[in-house]
Design a protein around this nucleic acid. Structure first.
Lengths: 257, 257
DNA sequence: TAGATTGTTAATCGATTAACAATC
DNA sequence: TAGATTGTTAATCGATTAACAATC
């Protein structure tokens, strides 16, 4: 999923204060804990046990304690974790104390939705620039931002210090966009286009892929159906295989028009 | 991520022809292979080696062969895999030979984008019903489908044999929607709302969470920055921690308005 | 002190990978 | 046959989990 170096790996020259080396699985859960902690804080909790936080986050408490142990020790035996302290600690580890400029490339259906996304309008991320390849869309204003032509990416990247690129273009355009982002110095990419991106070492790519998620669910539905007799929803109908058909799930665009 | 039983686990009473027991990691990659295979087919390839397919899918060939070995043996030593045969095999394992009815709950910004998603309009998935809690939105027509009130979920679920529920509501509404979906017999849920859902055993939940993806990227950016001196995009500016601030990334809606 | 809860240990499990014998 | 490539083995790695000693 994510293509990246593990810069904290043992053996590198130690010129910087060693950052804790977190397992990827832990990194992926910290944002979930953080969200649960914010909810707890809103509800007036000053302290929470590993059991309480784990259940709010939907994991078991052993895993939670193991994860938090990688950050150092921030709990009190017999008491639990101080909610505000733990929030600060996780935000610090995730680098959320910096505000990162996000570029959104592709302002189709999905791009429009993402441009209005509240998650962007947070302290840690601000959507700083919009791009599209369609001249008809360039100049359009969305949420107070003007859409640039994608060829301006390099220039704007420098001006706005773009740190993260979000690709919401058709699959056919995504690799070229990724190349442009990388050339512009962006080393973190979130890809909504249904395709594999190839990027140089040191660039992180994460992907969000609706078709893949649906197909994984389909697998488990299929399993459940073949085990329990007939399912609640029921298999709508069996499709006859017609070789040569159009691919069932390979849309031209990240989100079609 | 996914909460589900492993129905094919050893030890169950064997009343059905045993389905191959696939590792979750393999299941998650099969859709990627499938997409790559469709591209190869479009480009006229009749045969592909594990090396060729692996590189198109962005994995190494050992992993690909291992994954495919779980499906049985469909390659020819010295030659490779027949593209069409392998497509058929993967589609069959993923249950993509059935057409599944998808319910989309929440037709805000994101919901609208998803309703137009080409991945839904495939042979394996058809978007069969739209729901919203906002009376002002009920009755609206999107892509040829009328928006129902969410209270009609149970009735429509039976009529349309809904198999998969996609939640694109605000976080605050998501759990109630999930409960209604489960009550209506839906056992596969794709959750775009930024919250943890709790569902009974036997129900699969997969989540797509933009804020989490951004925060994971942020972690690696942070790492890269602290290692290599200053990054290309540069840390825009350091935020002062103001305890009591609004949560940085816990939007009220899956995609805000 | 007694009860509660953390942080850590060690066992287990699942996933990845390289190497290579089998075989087309 | 010789070259190519699969399917499988076995070693390695990372993640999960339960249990419990440490300690508030």
């Amino acid at each position: 999923m994510s293509q990246h170096r593990h810069p904290g790996a043992p053996g590198r020259a130690g010129t910087v204060p060693a950052l804790p080396d977190l397992p990827e699985a832990t990194v992926a859960r910290l944002p979930v804990y953080l969200r649960a902690l914010h909810q707890l804080a809103e509800n007036g909790h000053e302290t929470v046990s590993s059991e309480g936080l784990a259940s709010a986050a939907g994991v078991n408490s052993a895993k939670l304690r193991k994860d938090l142990s990688h950050l150092g020790s921030y709990g009190t035996r017999g008491v639990g974790y101080d909610v505000e302290v733990l929030i600060g600690q996780i935000e610090s580890v995730l680098g959320l104390t910096q505000s990162r400029a996000v570029a959104l490339v592709g302002v189709g259906n999905l791009g429009h939705a993402l441009a209005g996304y509240a998650g962007f309008a947070s302290r840690a991320f601000r959507i700083a620039a919009l791009f599209d390849a369609d001249p008809a869309r360039v100049g359009e204003e969305i949420n107070g931002l003007v859409v640039h032509h994608v060829d301006e990416l390099a220039r704007v990247a420098v001006e706005e210090r773009l740190a993260i690129g979000v690709i919401a273009t058709p699959a056919g355009a995504a690799q070229a966009v990724a190349d442009q982002l990388v050339a512009a110095g962006v080393r973190s990419i979130l890809n909504f286009a249904p395709c594999v991106l190839s990027v140089p070492e040191g660039v992180d790519v994460r992907k969000v892929d609706l078709a893949i998620e649906l197909q994984i669910l389909s697998f488990h539905e299929h399993r459940k159906a073949s085990l329990t007799g007939l399912p609640a929803g029921g298999p709508a109908h069996t499709l006859t295989t017609r070789p040569g058909d159009a691919p069932p799930t390979d849309p031209q665009e990240a989100i079609g028009t």
